[in-house]
Amino acid sequence: MEFVEATSALTARLAAGNDDLAAAGAICLAVEAWKHLAGEDTAWDRFGLEILNVRSTFYTHYDDVVVDTTVPTTASTHIRDAVRELVSQLARYHDHRALDADSALSERLDHDAAAQQLRRAVAALA
């Protein structure tokens, strides 16, 4: 599957509902984009700092999640837009989790912080 196609599929899954596996896949693709595009543009470096922090807080137990896709090799506008949309949707996922009244306050605050970090990551690519 092509990278942009994979980001679109995961964006749609996240938009459809509370999908923890899609969220893990989204963080996986975001990290892959950062790993392959950092250095070309400092925006990707700033993006990566935010993404890595969210990954270390929420996604370490999903290390075995792999999205079978090509890797981006150049930072085209099309790839940047796809990654921004994916991470924006992931931020909305964490916003939703932050409002879950069945979760402990500390967990809700962690999700709120993650959503803010993800929005900063998106802003770095704007």
Rank of each mutant, 00 (worst) to 15 (best):
R97L: 14
G39A: 10
V4N: 02
I27S: 01
A12V: 10
Y62S: 14
Y59E: 06
R120W: 00
A15Y: 00
D19Q: 08
F3D: 02
V87N: 02
R80A: 08
E40R: 09
Q89M: 13
P72D: 03
D100Q: 04
D64I: 09
Y59M: 06
H111E: 11
A98C: 05
F47E: 07
E50L: 12
I27F: 05
A43C: 11
L109Q: 09
A91N: 04
E2Q: 07
R80V: 06
H111I: 02
S88V: 02
A124V: 01
F58R: 08
S76V: 07
R46I: 10
G39Q: 00
G39N: 00
A82S: 14
F58E: 06
Q116L: 15
F3S: 04
A101C: 06
Y59A: 03
Q89D: 11
I79G: 05
A75M: 01
V83P: 10
M1N: 05
S106K: 12
A91L: 06
R97E: 08
W44I: 08
A24I: 03
T11P: 05
A101R: 13
M1F: 03
L37V: 05
I27N: 05
L52G: 07
D81G: 08
T42E: 14
S88D: 13
G48M: 01
D68I: 06
V67A: 03
L14A: 02
Q89K: 14
G17A: 11
A38E: 14
A123D: 11
G39W: 07
S103P: 01
H61E: 12
H61V: 01
F47S: 09
R55N: 15
T77M: 07
R97C: 11
A43F: 04
R80Q: 09
L37S: 08
L109P: 00
L109R: 12
T74M: 12
T77S: 13
A6M: 01
R46A: 05
A24S: 12
S56K: 06
L14P: 02
T7D: 04
D45E: 15
S56N: 15
H111M: 13
L86E: 07
T73G: 10
C28M: 13
A6E: 03
A24F: 03
R97N: 10
V71L: 00
A114S: 13
Y93F: 15
K35R: 14
R119A: 03
V83I: 11
A43D: 10
A24H: 06
E5L: 04
V66E: 09
T42Q: 15
V4H: 07
A26I: 09
